[in-house]
């Protein structure tokens, strides 16, 4: 899976939870889930659950702290699907 595919998939996953539409339009690897996209903490858990479903992976509880930005989520997903 290419980085582009990953970003496209992540964009679809985070869309329902984003509160800053403008930041969503310019979403990139550096976009911070909370500070830029304004996803609230409860919905960040929803994003994790949706990522698990979409990629058929398990994100361990101790890995939740790595879910900071689109880029860090991509890294985490890549290591699990490779």
């Amino acid at each position: 899976m290419t980085n582009e595919d990953l970003i496209t998939a992540l964009k679809k996953i985070v869309k329902p939870y984003v509160q800053d539409e403008l930041a969503f339009e310019t979403l990139g690897e550096e976009s911070d889930f909370i500070h830029d996209l304004k996803i609230n903490s409860a919905h960040l858990i929803d994003v994790v659950l949706d990522i698990e479903d979409h990629f058929d992976i398990t994100i361990e509880n101790e890995e939740l702290e790595k879910m900071v930005s689109v880029g860090s989520a991509m890294k985490l997903i890549s290591t699990k699907i490779s």
């Binding site: 903490s41 509880n61 101790e62 939740l64 702290e65």
Partner: peptide, 17 residues
């Protein structure tokens, strides 16, 4: 509790656990 911990100077991200 997280919001209060930030006020108390614990400048970490919210990790529910």
């Amino acid at each position: 509790g997280y919001k209060l911990s930030v006020q108390c100077g614990r400048m970490k991200r919210f990790i529910p656990l």
